[in-house]
Design a protein around this nucleic acid. Sequence first.
RNA 1: CGGAGCGUAGCUCAGCCUGGCUAGAGCACUUGCUUUGGGAGCAAGACGUCGCAGGUUCAAAUCCUGUCGCUCCGACCA
Length: 577
Amino acid sequence: MLWTHTFIPTLKETPADAEIISHQLLLRAGLIRKLTGGLYTFLPLGLRVLRKIETIVREEMNRAGALEVLMPALQPPEIWQKSGRYESARDVFFKARDRAKKEWILGPTHEEVITTLVANEISSYRQLPRNFYQIQTKFRDEIRPRFGLMRAKEFIMKDAYSFDASDEAAQASYQKMYDAYVRIFQRCGLKAMPVEADTGVMGGKFSHEFMVPAETGESEVAYCETGDYAANVEKAISRLPSAEPPAAEQNSRITQHASLPEKFATPGVLTIDALTKAPYNVPAEQQIKTLVYLVESKIVLILMRGDHQLNEAKLTGTLGTGNFRAATEEEIFSALGAHPGSLGAVSVTKFRVYADEMLRGGRGMTTGANEDGFHLRNVSVERDISVAKWAELRLVTAGEPCPACGQPLKIRRAIEVGHVFKLGAKYSEALEALFLDEAGKQQPAIMGCYGIGVTRTMQAVIEQCQDKDGIIWPISVAPFTVCITPLNINPGNPLILLAEKLYQELLSRGVDVILDNRDERPGVKFKDSELIGFPIRVGIGEKSLARGEVEIKRRGGVLIPIKAEEAVGKVLELLKQ
RNA sequence: CGGAGCGUAGCUCAGCCUGGCUAGAGCACUUGCUUUGGGAGCAAGACGUCGCAGGUUCAAAUCCUGUCGCUCCGACCA
């Protein structure tokens, strides 16, 4: 490709509406342009990167035995009603109407479509397993589009759906996709780590997310440096001892255990923190935090240890519904007769009480008395509170022991680029994707679904591979792998003649090469090639050519002077690495 | 949806608080000359409904009201 023939509008200055580095570089390097919030045009260079990522995804999906299809982006609402997701997913839908005023949905995902297909086409265990995938634009009415391609109204996703005759077979399909994902991200030059993930309201049993560590990521991952454990914080657990008092303190606690809850005045104390201070001196881990939620419009109490945080994703799992919110101050007061800061669950029987596992066995604890300005001490959780359900509800924090090996957990932010899900029979039952097994018995297919955010992956690569000068593309996804930079482009000049010769030779060997034949000063050409981040630059200038040499530079590496006739060989060698 | 901020040239921004000449700078763009190994210099030029609508005023980019859009923080996810 000749530079003057393609379109690469690089920007010297940082666009004001791009906050994170990868978004800035996407714009500055001339890869994308914004149409409006959450909607972007891929320019020629950006499209090349996208296509390369798609090719890697296709190759690995095909290798794993998945079959490519292309489903409609426009979907009838009926199949969503049938699957039962029409209501729960309504917030993400973009809807359209045809001339007859019938409603249509711009597909945010395709479980319903593929399951409908399979329901019609597959009827025997002999036709299973199957895995269908597509690479297609998805539409989601995001609450807040953000960070360029990271969270857009419209984005390109690879989505795959597996159908199996048994649970074990489904597990094997899942593993195949998991392995394929590891390869895909590796080939894209990304350091992505698979982490255990929450299944949320999807109700699946088993799920992993593929995370690219980055400060700008929207997710948080808890992991252990030994590599024994990694999980989304929504899902993460740790090996913290329960509220059972340590042996050394057992004696004093036993006496407290014998005594009954005792009310004491705590005027003006409204926080866990305030109660830890004099004259009360109650450590946070000896306090019970009482949270009030409205779950499907019913008041529910949630108890956590004072120093712990509620994890709403785990709450969703425990409640079996995502339809909840924190109660307002008025709702709390009318339910419990006290304001936040003085709440407790002792002798509360009117409302369902959920307690975090960490409170099990807790004695001598302090909690609100449901009377403004008073708390209760000497509370034994199991004796004094009627807990309807014990559950794992805590948000894990850094430093807690790894559940696998006991080493301290670390927490860091990450970008979710892929998600694999074991779905079970939820959709196949609802949409009647049934088959006859060997015994002639009708059964629903066991499903899995597997997504990769292709456009997001592109941005994640940039987020991970850049320096102060610009992008540093991995060879596998670079828009062009080699940029030839002659410093004089006048026709007939030895520099451009050599440049054209090298260009032709590299082209004939199938190298993605671009020739910077612009009439620009050297500084401009160097800056642009570094901003865009071509992995290899071949510089051709008068000084070195006088010695019969050209200059090869790996992006981010050192300059290698080399005889002109050896340049092509050297480039090919570098590309192999 | 709640909170914060911003809309002035293609881009980055000044001017607004305290209303007043023909609305500015840098970069980019056009032409010419010079320059030519790290985002060149000089000269000339082109580019604006100051987001939009309404109001206050002799006078509005500037003050007021409304509206639209964008960015950031929270709930959503690939």
